[in-house]
Design a protein around this nucleic acid. Sequence first.
RNA 1: GCCGGGGUGGCGAAAUUGGAAUACGCGCGAGACUUAGGAUCUCGUGGUCGAAAGACUGUGCGGGUUCAAAUCCCGCCCUCGGCACCA
Length: 869
Amino acid sequence: MGLAMDQHYRPKEIEEKWQKIWEDQNLFKVTEDLERPKYYLLEMFPYPSGKIHMGHVRNYSIGDVIARYKRMRGFNVLHPMGWDAFGMPAENAAIEHGVHPAKWTYENIRTMKNQLKRMGFSYDWDREFATCDVSYYKWEQLFFIKMFEKGLAYKKRSFVNWCEICKTVLANEQVMSDGTCWRGHADDPGVTQKELDQWFFKITDYAEELLKWCDQLPGWPERVLTMQRNWIGKSVGAEIHFPLEHSKEVIKVFTTRQDTVFGATFMSLAPEHPLALSLSKGTAQEEAVKAFVERMKRQDKMKRTAETTEKEGVFTGAYCLNPMTKARMPIFVANFVLMDYGTGAVMAVPTHDQRDFEFAKKYGLPLIVVVQPEGQTLKAETMTEAYEGEGILINSGPFNGMDSIKARERIANYLEENGLGGSRISYRLRDWGISRQRYWGAPIPIIYCERCGTVPVPEKDLPVVLPFNVEITGRGESPLAGLEEFVKTSCPRCGGPGRRETDTMDTFVESSWYFDRFACPDYDQGPLDRKRVDYWMPVDQYIGGIEHAILHLLYSRFFTRVLKEMGWVNVEEPFTNLLTQGMVCKEVYECSRDGYLFPSEVEERENGIRCQKCGGQVSIGRLEKMSKSKKNVVDPEYLVEKYGADTARMFCLFASPPEKDLDWSDQGVEGSARFLNRVWRLFYELHHPLQAVKPLAFGTSLDGDQKSLRQKTHKTIKKVTEDIERFHFNTAISAIMELVNEIYTSPIRDQTDEISRRVIREAIETVVILLSPFVPHFAEELWEALGNQQSILKTRWPDYDPEAILEDEVLIVIQVNGKLRDRMTIPVSYGEEEVKAWALRSERIRRLVEGKEIKRVILVPKKLVNIVC
RNA sequence: GCCGGGGUGGCGAAAUUGGAAUACGCGCGAGACUUAGGAUCUCGUGGUCGAAAGACUGUGCGGGUUCAAAUCCCGCCCUCGGCACCA
């Protein structure tokens, strides 16, 4: 039976219709409601770069399923959206196209907001804000001042990471492991070191707590926690003081192997260590040290600290004393010692550290074995590499014969008692450098006064508004520095002339507390309305890309601790559960001559896939994250135009589980579209309308095909509910597909008796409700066609009828010695002995066990019988 | 080197607690409907052997535990990600 013209699935029409209804009725607006349990669902807010991409569609589709599902389950769901709006690209647009960053940003926001609405995501748009709004960043300036007062924000001169493309400083977290900028520039020359006066947040004060609380986040993926733990990099060891010869001064070192201190035969200093130059002064080594330090300074830091770089150094001409043995230890400057880890000085134990071993061999320095491995006798003269394992101490005075692990504790205590150092803990984590030499960011609220020094802008003078009239050239220092009317001010303390700080804050500062602000975006008495923040925080479910595993997620945890200490919030950790979704990937076409190609630029010939431009061989198949530069993007707008938002959402959710990378497939999208059309047709091709049909009551008893369809319906409710709860959206959708297939092939599909119609109605209604979090417009339309007056959003998520899913009969697998040999369908009511007897009665089984002794018969109820013989 | 994730059909994937390996979808094959099909519907689809019934085999590799292993244990290989001359 054909469909009437108006009964074809037309996504564009129904999507526009329902988006308007949702908006007109304000259906996603929420306020605090103590009657219902709250659920704060948050997806990482986007940077308004221009248009949304598939990564956004995937991220927000996942979030929307949960938001809609939780609402139907009776939760008071906060599902906000806003804009991470400060940052580099806006400034680059200004440089390239002469458009003001503010104009560019707000226009992009308008475009992207429309695109998000077009996808049908259920946000409470009343809470929307952009971090470049003065009403947002002024509170961030207040936080900065409070942190400054507590010593958590401080300025220091140091070597910092400099990105020549961004023309600004980067935090350590923003430098990738290959030494490039986190923004991923096409031709990144690599981050270099620059000595500058910079503002820092004292995240290192929180290293231990941030590490400790990694164990209190069971709702976070293990790999993210591992990355954070690695990044914090805790080492337990000791500090040891080595007195300088002919001086009262000491060189302090940090070591994790204080048990090997008796074997320390020389000392290595970082080239940047202040003692490097001062110790050699006046000695014959002075010139050599100067030259070495200069050479190291010029060398690229990445290269210098690479593991493969040969160890080299230079003698300073000075000596220190081993505090345990009093032995004279020559002091070297060495390329492998880092100034920013530990103390910048390393005691060298060549017998038990491979680097020191290589260094000692190169410069002819003495070796003393102090740890003897169990069952072996190490001799310094014959060693070819350092022994870094545990063992029994020798040549170690009072500690001889002691186990090296135990000796670490004893020696640390000895150091402490004798004023020579003691137990210490060292972290790899460095303070967060937040100064950026850029215009499009929140101004750092600081004034420099010749008389009073560094003075914070008083609270009453906030905000320090980012001036609008500024020339952005992309050359030189921060654009604000050239703006005299901004820079010139008076000192809030003495009234004398003052100059403003012209650096702006790292945009990661804005994203470190936006989730709190969503609880009270309109609040103007302070940054946060404690009452509302306490109601909503913490975020129950946070969803975003794995690329923020350290960056944003660590900063936010730090910021939350600071805000809690200051009494602005009352939570220890901001995000209870974290879901890190995978990337959206697509194959790239690459021509050896013309580089990356669009699919439209290649053609298939007999001799393989060729480049249309040069005719050369094109390599394909490699899956990479969608990016404009790789020419493998799919524009969501095109998808929505061609298939509708529901199909696009459906594909993202069905193709793979959320944590995994999603491999783009045009045919897969077709498949999703086909499924929705199939449901649509099923609905309209029925021989009888369903509007007037009443649903079945719980506990209704049925027989035959009616019973089995009802059973499938309720089993599907159970399965889909469980799958959504554990974020297995792909299997939830496949379960709904199974139900649809079952309805299609059910013999009662077109029967017109009352009960059949009610069973069919229940099955189809269930499909529509279960689909609603995934494809909301589609579901609304069919829901209405079923005769419902109210939006499907107002419907409660169904419960399954426990009676309906009960089976009368069950399929039992029969194994012989663990191998599948037969199956039988038997009534569930059968007892253990009965089932076993039935299994042994099977013709095939009898043949197989004939003449053999049956040793055991194992029964797994409702599953299988295994006959062992 | 250390830490973590992963390896299942031609492809995306499923198997929640040790109990039928490959659900669902894509692709492919056959058929139906049709003037036509790139629409739709039905059936088939891990491999080898076989006309078939069926047999053997099969979840990266090699062992082990168990009546029974994709799942647990031991040892490897590959791959992705993080950290790494970190003292």
